[in-house]
């Protein structure tokens, strides 16, 4: 049970944090069309987080708002990748591309999870995440084939910066073996392998190159975070904390 909760927590925390970050673009994204796209994806991610926390609530944890909004940063199990600030659009796009491809493969495998509520959820969500991936891949190809040197340089720089963090998505959970043994999930190594193939094939259609010998930035799955997570959570909970005992 603890292993299952660990899996649900890391997925829920990833979804909440990336959803919050993508929602920071709402109203100020580079083009209205991208504003709409990032906002849609952010809503999906927040919805996924909400459902996953609800699933944890069913397993005896606190309710979704308490889990999402009122825990402190050192209780979160998201990868560090998602908590980094949105930066410029180039970074946010590269992160979206790298992260969502991993999400897509993760949910594809989760459709066969031995925890039926999770499997059911994964089957439903996969249709949404397919669009996230289509969007990320399309823009990666577009800007990875920029007509300007600046465009190519920016994208390459952000890819170099983001890639080690992206590898950190697949950091093993403390109960990784049990998660696999119980059939909850196929495990991070399998997802990572498929993910590498996808990322390589998309990047091959661009003028960009994947950094070689990148070392994964890990820690998130063991509650170790950058300072950006606590700042983010403080902002996120500022209204609810005025009085968490009442309805808003």
């Amino acid at each position: 049970m603890e292993a299952l909760k660990e899996l649900l927590f890391k997925m829920a925390d990833d979804s909440l944090v990336i959803g919050h970050r993508m929602g920071e673009w709402t109203g100020i994204a580079p083009m209205m069309e991208e504003d709409l796209a990032f906002s849609s994806i952010a809503q999906d991610k927040l919805g996924h987080a909400n459902t996953l926390y609800d699933m944890l609530h069913e397993l005896g944890e606190a309710d979704a708002d308490t889990l999402g909004f009122l825990r402190s940063a050192n209780e979160f199990r998201n990868c560090q990748f998602v908590e980094l600030p949105i930066g410029d659009y180039d970074f946010s796009l590269v992160r979206h591309f790298l992260f969502d491809n991993a999400e897509f493969i993760r949910y594809k495998h989760l459709a066969n999870s031995s925890h039926e509520p999770l499997a059911k959820f994964a089957r439903k969500v996969i249709g949404e995440v397919r669009y996230h991936v289509m969007h990320g891949n399309a823009w990666m190809k577009k800007l990875g084939n920029s007509h300007t040197a600046e465009g190519l340089e920016r994208m390459q720089q952000q890819l170099n910066f983001a890639f080690p963090y992206a590898l950190g998505v697949f950091e093993h959970s403390p109960s990784e073996n049990e998660i696999k043994d119980q059939g909850y999930f196929v495990g991070e190594d399998t997802v990572k392998e498929e993910w590498m193939n996808t990322i390589k094939s998309v990047i091959a259609e661009t003028k960009l190159t994947l950094p070689e010998n990148a070392e994964p930035v890990t820690g998130g799955r063991k509650h170790e975070h950058t300072e950006h997570l606590s700042t983010m959570l403080e902002e996120m909970s500022v209204t609810l904390r005025l009085d968490p005992s009442v309805e808003w």
Binding site: T26, G27, M32, L36, S39, N50, G68, W248
Partner: peptide, 25 residues
């Protein structure tokens, strides 16, 4: 959007502001 109290409000205000951008477009 970043400070809305709880999931229900956060998701709703995000969708709402997104609509306004859609109207602009």
């Amino acid at each position: 959007i970043t400070r809305a109290p709880g999931f229900r409000r956060k998701r709703a205000i995000l969708a709402k502001v997104q609509d306004e951008i859609g109207h602009a477009q």
